[in-house]
């Protein structure tokens, strides 16, 4: 009888340890994904001064928009490297605002043929597209990692082990900006 109890306790301890190890692995994966996002966001931030410098030459009437973008970039840059879930959520919100601002800028640029056809602007826009694709990819990697971590923490006995594994407040998802949430048109693929 004693042996059965000992085996049962052993099984529970091993199961809890495996769960603990899973949560730690997934927490680290989230940290890795978050640093991947920061790398891509830094690239976005590095690109913005060049875009603004070119746009200023043509968009004299859009100084408000340009100032907004510069301000949002500064805000976003300050939050790079944040690890606290609340600060991460603020960072994501700021970055989504910045993304929306840049989207508006390129939409406005459509109305200025000289700006639109400027060689430097064309190159900057292509680089921006590439950076945005990478930001989106990093966001997907991060969100997948967060989902895994949340599943491990929220399914029993995850709640019991999460605190031991150093996971207090769960990290937030990085929602895609509204303009990126369009549906994929399957008809185009056939």
């Amino acid at each position: 009888m004693n042996l059965v109890v000992l085996i049962a306790i052993g099984v529970v301890v091993v199961a809890l340890y495996v769960w603990y190890a899973t949560i730690v692995t997934r927490r680290n994966k989230v940290a890795e994904a978050l640093s991947g996002i920061d790398v891509q966001l830094s690239q976005r931030h590095e690109l913005i001064p060049n875009i603004l410098a070119i746009a200023k030459r043509f968009l004299a009437h859009e100084q408000g928009l340009l100032a907004d973008i510069a301000r949002l970039r500064t805000t976003g840059q300050e939050r790079i490297g944040a690890t606290d879930p609340a600060a991460i959520a603020e960072k994501f919100a700021a970055e989504n605002q910045l993304s929306a601002g840049l989207g508006r800028l390129f939409a406005v640029a459509e109305g200025y043929p000289e700006l639109k056809s400027d060689a430097v602007m064309v190159r900057a826009q292509a680089t921006y597209q590439e950076v945005e694709t990478n930001v989106a990819a990093a966001r997907r990697f991060y969100n997948a990692s967060v989902t895994d971590l949340r599943n491990a923490c929220q399914i029993f006995p995850g709640q019991l082990v999460a605190a031991l594994a150093g996971v207090g407040q769960l990290p937030p998802f990085f929602e895609a900006p509204a303009e990126h949430r369009g549906a994929v048109n399957a008809a185009d693929h056939l």
Binding site: A33, G36, A136, A137, A138, R140
Partner: peptide, 17 residues
């Protein structure tokens, strides 16, 4: 992981299938 997802966007996956 990030570079893989930069290529394998939802649209790329839909087109691949």
């Amino acid at each position: 992981q990030i570079s893989a997802r930069a290529l394998l966007t939802p649209a790329f996956m839909a087109r691949f299938m």
